[in-house]
């Protein structure tokens, strides 16, 4: 988009926030890659070391990013548009839940404490907002959102200080649980979600997947180790 449309240069100002952000993003990645490959020896021309290509690619990425960022000051292009936070939270969160629960996981130390506090805070916030005259927490309006955020922050801090968890471990739940969990949780991301329909679909779809992948194709995917031992 950037190089094709041109307008006469009348001083430099941001003409495409998308390209500018894209350029800065590339530069950020490049700098990151360069820093993290700093320790790797570049070697000689005759015997290239492991660091040669990562560094070279990082430099080129950075240079391209710089060009893109500069071009955004000269040429018109697309502007940045909004994010779908809901999609990120529910759809990717659902996948993450699946990955974490299918064979179980264990988190130790401070991270466990943070996660536990976060979960408790979130759960409490959702329950509170259901009880309170505030609207459905999944479609919080702006005013309510701030209230919910501060309630969450408060509960999070309280839980973090008072609840000394050292280990969180989730047993391997298997496809029988992780499947519906993934489908239901991620399905909440749709604007036109219908929780009842979604619940039925989650169960039916998971059963279908179990029959297809576990029985028809006999994949070694755990089904419900906590219940059936497989």
């Amino acid at each position: 988009m950037s190089l094709n449309q041109i307008e006469q240069a009348q001083g430099l100002r941001v003409r495409s926030t998308q390209d500018l952000a894209g350029g800065l993003f590339m530069i950020l990645l490049a700098v990151g890659a360069f820093v993290f490959s700093w320790d790797l020896p570049a070697g000689t021309l005759r015997q290239l070391g492991p660091g040669m290509l990562p560094k070279a690619f990082a430099v080129i990425c950075g240079a391209l990013g710089l060009m893109l960022a500069l071009a955004s000051l000269r040429y018109h292009g697309e502007q940045l548009s909004g994010w779908s936070w809901k999609g990120i939270f529910f759809a990717l969160g659902g996948a993450l839940l699946f990955g974490l629960t299918i064979r179980g996981f264990e988190v130790n130390g401070f991270l466990a404490r943070v996660i536990a506090a976060g979960l408790m805070g979130a759960a409490a916030t959702i329950i509170l907002s259901y009880l309170s005259p505030l609207n459905n927490p999944l479609s919080l309006k702006l005013g309510h959102r701030n209230a919910a955020t501060s309630i969450f922050a408060l509960l999070f801090l309280i839980a973090l200080i008072l609840y000394p968890v050292t280990t969180i471990s989730v047993p391997a739940l298997g496809l029988l649980v992780s499947g519906p969990l993934l489908i239901f949780f991620s399905g909440l991301a749709a604007d036109d979600r219908k929780p009842k329909e979604l619940l039925i679909f989650a169960v039916a779809m998971s059963l279908g997947c179990i029959l297809l992948f576990k029985y028809a194709l006999s994949l070694p995917i755990p089904l419900a180790p906590w219940l059936l031992g497989i």
């Binding site: 759809a91 659902g94 996948a95 699946f98 990955g99 496809l175 499947g179 993934l182 489908i183 239901f184 991620s186 399905g187 991301a189 749709a190 036109d192 979600r193 219908k194 329909e197 979604l198 679909f201 989650a202 779809m205 998971s206 997947c209 992948f213 994949l219 995917i221």
Partner: peptide
Amino acid sequence: YRLMFPAILIFCCI
């Protein structure tokens, strides 16, 4: 799509 995308996600995940 509200049902399609969770199905896509579970296929991808499995």
